[in-house]
């Protein structure tokens, strides 16, 4: 209870500081509008159909990207994690591909795929595959050999072991990967919308408000909404993780 009040006080304090800073004249007020102004805009935006469509576009793209990257990374991770030979052989390739920032692929992706939603989803998937992949591999590494041996002693086949033993115990790690991937996806989607324009989305809205009409209050309102989406996604997945895999301490997440 005390923690909650303190948390709320902290948020209030943050808003007050922002308000005072915005009104202090240290930066021109139109550059950094105070929360009272942004708040009013935000309420207005929530009733604005075009804005809501932007938000929905981004959230939909986020869901699709997370789904796709999970669908790609988990099977791949299971293969790489359970067949060491393949994993070691592909290691150099993976280590080389992983650090390529997805935003660096924007120019290429625009030329190849145009500026439609496919393009931003593709880039988001490229970025989001890695955390899930590595967490899946890591999970198989952590797999208790005793568990596997027990299963095999009872005559369980390799594939059945994978599905009945390996997957369930890998689940918490995979979920951690998905959670991180979702955050990454959101960052990439907003970046691409912002930088490449074209397809509707929250990032596009922010960029339009900035360069078209110079309305920083709208920019900040959009940013707050992006933050709320990020928060809800992270929090939601963390809760899911805690509920579904409460038996595991290896959730790898921050409490």
């Amino acid at each position: 209870m005390r923690a909650l009040t303190r948390g709320l006080l902290g948020v209030a304090g943050f808003l007050v500081v922002w308000e005072l800073f915005g009104r202090s004249g240290l930066v021109p007020a139109e550059y950094l509008p105070p929360p009272t102004v942004v708040g009013v805009e935000l309420v207005g935006l929530l009733g604005d159909e075009a804005f809501l469509r932007d938000v929905i576009a981004t959230v939909l793209a986020l869901l699709i990207a997370v789904g796709l990257s999970t669908g790609i990374a988990v099977p791949l991770g299971l293969v790489l994690g359970s067949v060491p030979a393949v994993r070691h052989a592909t290691r150099a390739v993976v280590e080389f591909l992983r650090p390529i920032p997805s935003v660096a692929l924007i120019p290429l992706a625009i030329l190849l795929l145009g500026i439609g939603p496919e393009m931003k989803i593709t880039l988001a998937v490229y970025a989001a595959v890695w955390p899930i992949l590595f967490n899946t591999i890591y999970a198989l590494d952590e797999l208790d050999p005793l568990l596997v041996e027990t299963a095999r002693v009872f005559g369980t086949g390799r594939v059945r072991v994978l599905f009945s033993v390996a997957l369930p115990s890998a689940l918490p790690f995979v979920l951690t990967g998905v959670r991180l991937a979702a955050t990454t996806c959101l960052v990439v989607l907003v970046s691409v919308e912002l930088l490449a324009g074209g397809s509707r989305g929250l990032g596009q809205f922010i960029m339009d408000s900035h360069s078209g009409v110079g309305r920083m209050d709208l920019v900040l309102a959009g940013t707050v909404v992006a933050g709320v989406i990020g928060f809800l996604v992270n929090e939601g997945l963390e809760r899911a993780q805690r509920r579904w895999v409460a038996w595991s301490s290896a959730t790898g997440g921050r409490p």
Binding site: R2, G7, G10, A226, G227, G230, F231
Partner: peptide, 28 residues
């Protein structure tokens, strides 16, 4: 105690996709 005050604000700030603030930084 300090973390109880700062926790929610930090969690929110962490959730903001940093590129979204590029326009603000551009202006400032």
């Amino acid at each position: 105690t300090a973390m109880q005050y700062a926790g929610p604000v930090l969690t929110f700030l962490r959730s903001v996709p940093p590129p979204a603030l590029v326009p603000v930084f551009l202006l400032v």
